[in-house]
């Protein structure tokens, strides 16, 4: 748990730097916020990678028929990415662009989840007698 404290300290220091720089230069403070987001995301991504490797090894080792694990991982990735970009745009007072990014993310998630939806529909249809 030492590393999470380290991360929080880095976030606090970066927040103070952003507050200092924001009075002087608005655009560079936005880039500073972006850089802080990149660092936090990269830090979390290492742990998430281990988690996903664990999931995939469990699925392959115990032969669990978790059919659409790849699709689930992709959907989680698109959701994280969309949230990251949209929060960043909201910080820069670009609320309308953030809403557009969220719409694009939702459409991509729908596109990715379409095979699962089709398989659910096929299962339902097989219950209906001809």
């Amino acid at each position: 748990m030492g590393s999470i404290l380290q991360l929080f300290v880095i976030i606090m220091v970066a927040a103070m730097l952003v507050i200092i720089v924001r009075e002087q230069n608005e655009s560079i403070s936005f880039l500073l916020v972006l850089l802080l987001g990149i660092f936090v995301f990269l830090f979390v991504l290492n742990q998430v990678e281990q988690l996903f490797n664990l999931f995939q090894s469990i699925v392959s080792k115990f032969d669990v028929s978790l059919l659409h694990l790849d699709t689930m991982i992709k959907v989680i990735g698109v959701a994280y990415l969309t949230e990251f970009i949209s929060q960043l745009l909201k910080d820069a007072q670009l609320n309308s662009v953030a809403v557009k990014v969220e719409i694009v993310g939702k459409l991509f998630i729908l596109l990715l989840a379409l095979p699962i939806f089709i398989s659910v529909l096929e299962t339902l249809m097989s219950f209906i007698p001809q």
């Binding site: 970066a14 730097l17 952003v18 720089v21 500073l32």
Partner: peptide, 12 residues
């Protein structure tokens, strides 16, 4: 991070 903040202040 410190480098970017320093660039921001110096530019200001």
């Amino acid at each position: 991070l410190f480098q970017v903040a320093g660039v921001g202040i110096i530019v200001a």
